[in-house]
Write a protein that binds this DNA or RNA. Structure first.
Lengths: 129, 129
DNA sequence: ATGATATATAATAATAATTACTATTATTGT
DNA sequence: ACAATAATAGTAATTATTATTATATATCAT
């Protein structure tokens, strides 16, 4: 039960995320979607972003710069956060699941996964000297 | 300038963190410190937790279960978060800084570090079968 | 010890991100 | 087309955190 019904708002949100390389916050999604759907509500954006990430159709990124960000690519991958400009970039690297084994050695519980993000200075923010 | 002056409230917060293996939230610190300092203010707790972590005397953990947690051990180390009970545990493992190199290969910016936490089921939450 | 100066505090208000509520609207199965 | 149910817009409420301000406390020079 609790069948999911189609809504054009949700469709628009998913389309928007699938067509951007940015990793927008809920508020950015709201402001941009509003250009096509002037009456969309911020609550609708939040509800659908959470629903889509629960369904595994998008990723919710807890980059902890205050608010969550969203990624239209649901495949597990790593992110880089620039300390200077705050941008979130995709990293092209293999999965590093061997760190789960390192962490699990001597740990009495079960390690199921890890959350990792890398930080530093992005190419646009490196001063030219 | 902006010299730091001693305060017994800050001392109590540091003592409290150094004597617990838990990773309390600001609110938990507040509630516990209040047993000895009934008039302490939540704002004071937040200000001192931030000050201490800026000074490198404690760690602020962004485990992203909604709120920040604090660790009296300022040495860099990794944390495990139990999906069932939500507890945050210290992991005894070496630093895995080689993942910065993996991430940096082919990345045009500079990787300076990473934030990682592991999740799964802690020993107390593993069902006995 | 005394007083001047600067920092810290308690109490409260304000902010930011997110979630909850509710009457209305849209979708879906028959 | 109709009934049942989920989704929406608009608004209010919640949660974690930061800002404000008058008062209290610590520190430093005398």
């Amino acid at each position: 039960m609790a069948a999911i019904k189609y809504s054009r708002q949700r469709e628009a949100i998913k389309d928007y995320l699938m067509n951007t390389k940015q990793h927008p916050t809920a508020d950015t999604v709201y402001l941009d979607i509003r250009k096509n759907y002037p009456n969309i509500s911020l609550g609708t954006v939040y509800r659908n972003l959470n629903l889509l990430s629960e369904q595994g159709e998008i990723l919710k990124i807890n980059c902890r710069d205050g608010c969550d960000r969203f990624d239209g690519n649901p495949e597990p991958h790593y992110h880089f956060i620039c300390k200077i400009c705050g941008r979130v970039l995709d990293l092209e690297m293999e999965q590093i699941d061997h760190i789960n084994v390192i962490a699990g050695a001597g740990f009495p519980g079960v390690i199921e996964g890890h959350v990792t993000y890398f930080y530093g200075t992005c190419s646009k923010c490196i001063p030219i000297n």
